[in-house]
Every structure is written in structure tokens, then in C-alpha cells.
Simulated scan of single mutants.
Amino acid sequence: MENKGILVINPGSTSTKIGVFENDQLVFEKNIHHNNEEIEQLNTIEDQISFRKNIIFSVLKENNYDVNNLALIMARGGLLKPVLSGVYHVNETMLHDLKHAPKFHASNLAGLIANEIAEKQNIKAYIADPVVVDELSNLARFTGHPEFSRISIFHALNQKAVARKYAASIDKKYEDLNLIVTHIGGGITVGAHEKGKVIDVNQGYDGEGPFSPERSGTVPSGDLIKKAFSGEYTEKEMHEMIVGKGGVSAYLGTNNMIEVENRVEAGDEKATEVLEAMCYQISKTIGSMAVALKGNVDAILITGGVAHSDFVTAKIEEYTKFIAPNSVFPGEDELEALAYNGSLILQNSIEINTYQ
């Protein structure tokens, strides 16, 4: 009997999400939470790989899943060199770059873990639409100074998956539509999708665009320079001010958006103003992406964990409905999106790219 199982791996800083799919159907999924004490004891990337790999095997065993039934493994892409959208085989060049990336992100572990499991099972591992998908137009790369250039790091996997899902829902092809896709999670990215390519997107990973639950977004550059040279902060503290301890967290002392919404419902005026300000900034970014598409926008799609908030989605629609209709796809479809790409591989209906 031909193997048909697809194992999907998506690590976060304190969690590892996995799913097993067969014939486009979810067999089971598990969000494995790791406490901070466990993670802090893992001093190297190799320690992280071994720790998470062993837990994945344990979860598969607990769910009585025969690992010998796996046909391939799909992993979330990490901080690699810029690539075009698509599926990539995990090769030696990719493994090297995942281990030696200038900035470490938990997503870098996915391909490394997938490769070790794949080698053990004598199958192949792949990634699809990593965060470094780069389809920016040349004009979108300009910043205003030749020492700096805008780069593309965004929620490519979820944005592309939601765009394709929306296109299918109206019996159109993703490549035939102009869409603005907004992913609202711990970080926020807003992409201008022109006929299947993301020609512009804010680099939300380390500080561009609207502020988010834990990131400051674009801040006044002059004030930022003064803070950096004031002697009051270390480089690490400055970075945390922008990424990790910025945004809603800095204003309200929490990045838990459910807690923030509860405070809004209880009449907390500060929480209400901060949440409205975040929606306002998101909407302004959507407006800028409408300009990138020259006003030819078929729909505005809102996705990510915070898209579960009726308050947030209603506020954004209030500001942006004049541009195009809003459609909401709450949550993250990353496991499903990876599995979908895996099924295309098994059907030999997608080109497999080589990472170089």
C-alpha cells in the first residue's frame, strides 16, 4: 500500500504545532506547549532540534499513528535568503542557512526538525511559502536613502493560503485577482497581491507598518536615534522596545488580545483608545496598499488570530470599505496550507524548487 501521510511541523518560540493529514483530511493535530524553563535549558539549536523531535515522535505514538505511513514532511519556512513563492525541497544549502541565519527565529527549527525525521524515515522534507518570499516591485524597495533597502519578510504562507481560499470561494483564480491581505497576530503584515504576486508588503518582523500586540511598528526615526544614543538603553533593550515589548504590550502591559477586549467591554477608556489606534494604523496601511494596486482592489482579506475579534474587524471595515469589500478569515491556516502543498507534491501537480 502506498504511503499517504503528510506530517506538518510549525514551531513557535514556546510551542510546536504539528498535524497529520491523509487524502487532504486532518487525521489529528496537536499544539505542544513548552514552558519557559524547558526552553531556557536548551542552549544550542541542536538541543532544540533533539528536544522537539523527540516530543513529536511521542505525540505520534500517543495518537497511535504509524510513522511508517508518512509519505513526506512539510515544514514552515524560516529566515532564509529571499525566494519566490512556492515549494522547496529541504537540501544541504537550506539546512546550513537555517542554522546560521543572522537572526534566529523559531520557524528556522521547522526545516531542521523535518529533515532529521525525514532521514530517519527515508522520505523527503519540504517547505512552502516561507516568510522570506520576495515578489516586491523595484519601486517598493526604495526607502529614501541608498544605505537602506526595504525587504520582504511577512506571513507569506497564511496570506497566500487565504488569498487562494478566497479566490476559490468566488470561482476565480488567485492569479486573476488584486487583493489586499492583512494578517493580524503578534505581528501584523499587510500585503498588496497583484495577480498572484505580493508586489508590496510592510516588513512587520522587526518594525515597519502598524503597531501590533507586541511590536511598535514604524516609530519616529529621529526620536528612535536619540533613544539609541541616550546611553539609557542597551542594544538588546532597544530591540525589545521595537519587537517583543512594543505595541499594545507597551501601552497596556499585556499582549493578550482577549484580555484587552475584555477591558474594552468593561469600559476601559485607555484600552479602547489603544485598540482603536491599532485598527486605525492597520487601515492606513491597507490604504497605502490600495495605492500600490492603483486603486484596483477586488477585496480586502483579514486573517490571523486577532481576526477573531469582531471589534477589530468592524473597525477596519469602517475605515476601508470604501476601497473594496472586506472578508474575514479568522485564525491561521498554516498547518492546512502546508498540508495542501504537500498533497500537490504527492499528486505531482506542483513544481518543486531548488533552494540555492
Rank of each mutant, 00 (worst) to 15 (best):
N158R: 05
K227Q: 12
E336L: 14
A292I: 01
D298G: 06
P82R: 11
G186Q: 06
I18T: 07
E147K: 13
E332P: 03
R52T: 09
P102M: 08
L60F: 09
A271Q: 01
E240S: 15
A161P: 01
E269L: 10
N64R: 06
T320K: 03
G295N: 06
P325T: 09
K236I: 11
T218M: 03
K160T: 14
A337W: 05
E194Y: 13
F329K: 07
A324F: 08
N256G: 04
P325C: 09
M278N: 05
E259D: 15
N64S: 14
N35S: 10
V132E: 06
K294N: 14
G5W: 00
V133W: 01
H145I: 13
A271W: 02
N326R: 12
L79R: 05
G231K: 09
P130Y: 04
Q203I: 08
G304W: 14
Y251E: 15
Y355G: 07
N35W: 00
N63P: 10
I18H: 05
H33Y: 12
E334R: 08
F322G: 00
M257E: 09
F148M: 15
E62C: 04
L26T: 03
E147R: 11
L70F: 10
I180S: 06
A292W: 03
F142S: 11
S349W: 00
Y88V: 10
V312P: 09
G342L: 02
E351D: 11
K160P: 02
S343D: 08
F28D: 08
P220R: 01
N256K: 06
I56Q: 03
L109I: 02
H96E: 15
T254A: 05
F142V: 14
E194H: 14
D298W: 02
D134H: 05
E235V: 13
G111I: 05
D268T: 06
H100T: 15
L60K: 07
K4L: 06
Y251D: 12
E194R: 14
I117S: 11
I39M: 15
M1E: 03
E336V: 07
F142P: 00
K245V: 00
H89R: 13
L179Q: 01
N23D: 15
L60R: 11
T254P: 04
E235C: 03
V83W: 10
G342V: 04
I123N: 04
K99E: 15
M257D: 05
E336S: 13
G305C: 11
H145V: 15
S327I: 07
H100R: 08
S327L: 10
F28Q: 09
P146W: 00
A266V: 11
F311H: 11
E38T: 11
A71T: 00
A167W: 01
D129Q: 01
S50A: 12
M74V: 01
N64P: 01
G187C: 11
T303E: 10
Q48E: 12
P146I: 09
V201Q: 03
M278W: 02
D298K: 04
F154C: 11
M238W: 04
H239E: 13
G111E: 04
